[in-house]
Design a protein around this nucleic acid. Structure first.
Lengths: 249, 249
DNA sequence: ACGCCCATGCGTACAGTGTGCGCAACCCAT
DNA sequence: ATGGGTTGCGCACACTGTACGCATGGGCGT
């Protein structure tokens, strides 16, 4: 009652034990994991150090004992999430099927964590985290084994396509999520404005017919779009293989 | 002396005229243009409404008379910058050469304004600005004229690749700019750490030999990488053309 | 068994952010 | 001259990342 400003200047014995006994306390791993949960749930701009700390029953600045900076935290989150991408081993018979699987896994990861694209778009690949290195290594193994004369170029091209497509999708899905509507619903609601914006652009009317169709099965159409582009890319890459490489052993 | 808190409660006749006479005052266009200048110069996180306003000799909140929100400002900036992308007219003889020119122009724009990728990565293409619509329209014209059975799919694939490649480059260039070193210098300095990170990933050693070479002519190698992927993509797309479409008229 | 040290947690504080609100000044039409 | 609508702005609020320094307690050397 006397000291109203400071609620607990008196270490009154209890409320002191539990803090350390209840949990192993903070750890970089726990912080990163919880950050990913928050990012997935509420998007990139909903993550603040204070909210994250609150979620971990910790004070805001306590996090800085385990993470140098918020940027570093994001870096760690990116690498963590990269661990979810599965790249088939290099000894698979068919490099092309393996590439499709890897691409699909990459895309799925990017859509499961839509903030990934934004972060990568801002920071690029100066990352060097263990999971990212492992990913690169497996991709390299795949394309070397397949017989590409210039595996690095081939890989970078493929990844550029996959990233470009995925990040466009992720951004769209984020917009959908923020709108609170279903994907089809948002398309329908956006249609009139889009049509008006297309006024005078004669080549776009056809595109919007397609967009209208998209409202019926948006997910399927996105899948198809990705598959189309991926096949295009792989067809082009196949041409770079030394003549006579068999499609399967 | 008496009223120290408010420096100019007295409208002392002068210091009143110039404000409106000197300039047409704020305007959405002027705001957007200055924002782009700042974004280009100091990157995306250096743009704040207050600093932008200061640059325009205006109060921070005055901007809100012409722009609803910072996000809207970014949207306007994106569309403005899209106006710089040049897509050859559809009547060019060779669709492929035209596509190369368009892709190069897109890439150049994205590298001139490295923040573009970040923004697009976060917001996607719900944008519908006039320049973006015009861009889409010209691309559509090009691919329809070329005879693609599914022009929208082809375009989206191409753009996905170009965006993916450009945004990776843009992110890298941003990192370079922030480091204050030359591109070659940063590569050299990063090399040891990269090599250590590659420890145990046997397929990556070759990639780093290439990276070392890159230090000699980073710009040329980035150009080559982009060109390679673009050719891959276009080769793949060419296969989708109805049989017998001539490469030139 | 005791005392020390250092890793860990946190309260406070600071500079900066986007933006809502309401007042003041100005331009133009009457 | 008057009134109204547009434009600019000062203030304020809630919130951000993070530097600093104190308190605490577990693990170690003696």
């Amino acid at each position: 009652m006397a000291a109203d400003k400071k609620p607990q200047p008196i270490p009154s014995v209890w409320t002191r034990r539990p803090r350390t006994a209840e949990q192993p306390g903070l750890s970089q791993d726990a912080i990163v994991r919880e950050a990913i949960v928050m990012l997935d749930a509420d998007g990139i701009e909903a993550l603040s150090m204070r909210k994250l700390a609150a979620r971990l029953n910790a004070g805001a600045t306590s996090l800085y004992r385990h993470v140098a900076t918020k940027d570093e935290l994001m870096e760690l989150a990116v690498d963590e999430v990269f661990g979810e991408v599965v790249v088939p081993p290099a000894d698979s018979a068919d490099w092309r099927a393996a590439a499709v699987r890897a691409a699909a896994s990459f895309r799925a990861t990017a859509l499961r964590h839509p903030w990934l694209s934004s972060v990568l778009g801002q920071a690029g690949l100066a990352y060097l985290g263990p999971n990212l290195m492992a990913f690169s290594n497996r991709m390299a193994a795949l394309f070397i084994k397949a017989g590409f004369p210039d595996p690095a170029l081939a890989i970078d091209s493929l990844i550029a396509f996959v990233m470009g497509m995925s990040s466009a999708e992720a951004a769209w899905l984020t917009t959908v999520a923020r709108s609170g509507e279903t994907e089809a619903g948002l398309i329908a609601r956006l249609m009139p404005e889009a049509q008006q914006a297309a006024e005078g652009h004669e080549n776009l009317t056809e595109a919007y017919v397609q967009a209208a169709a998209e409202a019926l099965d948006p997910v399927g159409l996105r899948d198809a779009k990705f598959a189309y582009g991926l096949e295009v890319m792989l067809d082009g890459l196949a041409l770079r293989l030394p003549a006579g490489t068999p499609p399967a052993e």
